[in-house]
């Protein structure tokens, strides 16, 4: 009896193992996929994550569930994703901060995001915008730089926090144009924008959705966008590159990555579904609201892009001496 039972179990195990791998790969995905977002619910990244997750759900016929964890600059979510099974059921929203900035900024990042993950695709890039209060006499980036150069240490800029995209983009401008300005970090863009509106800050570089309403109502004056090309959301606005610093380029970007070792065919399925989703008529306009334009490159291109970004920001961070701890 006992013998019979164990034979049965053994047989079942053999059958299961025979079926397991090929069938799983063919039927992927056959359960819910979770998307770890290293930012708090409600922010710009979260909005993009949810919109694209919905698009992928429609493509793959399996629910993509967003899990937010914005603690420790997103490092916790990144670590959690890196430790997950590389079976295609865990994805990470791979952004500038956690992927290429934090390792240079924090001492206690326990993983190297560039080697712990396999890139899937760069979803979208969004420009940041340079804004000044409505009553500021400054009308162009050129003038802003000239005034800052004339009086070192006099001009104050706000940012969404130490090491945020908004801070780094301004640092890059300061380094490119060799400026000495005072940085006032805030907890998020919101309170910094209040002080900018009240005229207590001279200027700020921030995401388009965070200030679009104020630009629209004339309470803030936009000077330029940070990307190498103009944005559709504010088509009349020049780029910083056009304004006299041709090498200047900074953007907030959003991508997907999966734990290292995920089978290539699964990565391909995810990439194809993502590319189809970000170009679908439901998703494109919602990305546009965030000021983001869809990219959808190959995993190799995304990997090369991240490597280049990592090297670039490492230098900016090192020069500015803003490394934490």
């Amino acid at each position: 009896m006992l013998r019979k039972k164990s034979t049965f179990i053994a047989a079942a195990a053999v059958v299961a193992s025979v079926f397991a791998s090929p069938v799983l790969a063919q039927t992927y995905p056959n359960k819910t996929i979770r998307l770890l977002v290293p930012y708090a619910a409600g922010g710009g990244t979260d909005a993009i994550a949810r919109v694209v997750a919905q698009g992928i759900t429609a493509q793959l016929g399996q629910q993509v569930v967003v899990e937010n964890n914005g603690s420790a600059g997103g490092n916790l979510a990144t670590q959690q994703a890196a430790k997950s099974d590389p079976d295609g059921y865990t994805m990470l929203m791979a952004n500038q901060g956690p992927m290429v900035v934090n390792p240079h900024l924090f001492k206690n990042v326990k993983i190297d995001p560039l080697t712990a993950f396999d890139p899937v695709t760069l979803i979208a890039e969004a420009p940041l915008v340079v804004v000044v209060p409505e009553n500021s006499h400054i009308t162009s980036v050129k003038q802003l730089v000239e005034e800052a150069a004339k009086a070192p240490g006099k001009m104050t800029y706000g940012s969404a926090g130490n090491g945020s995209a908004s801070h780094l983009a301004t640092l890059l401008l300061a380094e490119t144009a060799n400026l000495d300005m005072v940085h006032a970090p805030y907890k998020g863009a919101g309170p910094a924008i209040t002080d900018l509106l009240g005229g207590r800050l001279d200027f700020m570089v921030t995401t388009i959705p965070s200030v679009f309403g104020f630009i629209d109502s004339g309470k803030l004056k936009p000077l330029a966008v940070t990307t190498s090309h103009r944005t559709k959301r504010l088509p009349d606005l020049p780029t910083i590159a056009e304004s006299g610093w041709p090498n200047y380029q900074a953007a907030a970007w959003y991508g997907f990555a999966v734990p290292k070792g995920t089978p290539p065919e699964i990565i391909k399925t995810l990439r194809d579904a993502t590319v189809a989703a970000i170009n679908s008529p439901e998703v494109v306009p919602r990305l546009a609201i965030e000021g983001a334009e869809p990219v959808g490159n190959t995993p190799e291109e995304f990997a090369a892009f991240m490597k280049q970004e990592s090297a670039r920001w490492a230098e900016v961070i090192k020069k500015a001496g803003i490394g934490l701890d």
């Binding site: 619910a41 409600g42 919101g190 309403g213 109502s217 919602r286």
Partner: peptide, 19 residues
């Protein structure tokens, strides 16, 4: 209110004077 702002942004509305 921070959560409400998040809900508005997700819905495609930029909170601000233009609302």
């Amino acid at each position: 209110m921070a959560l409400m702002i998040g809900a508005m942004i997700i819905q495609g509305i930029t909170p601000g004077p233009n609302v």
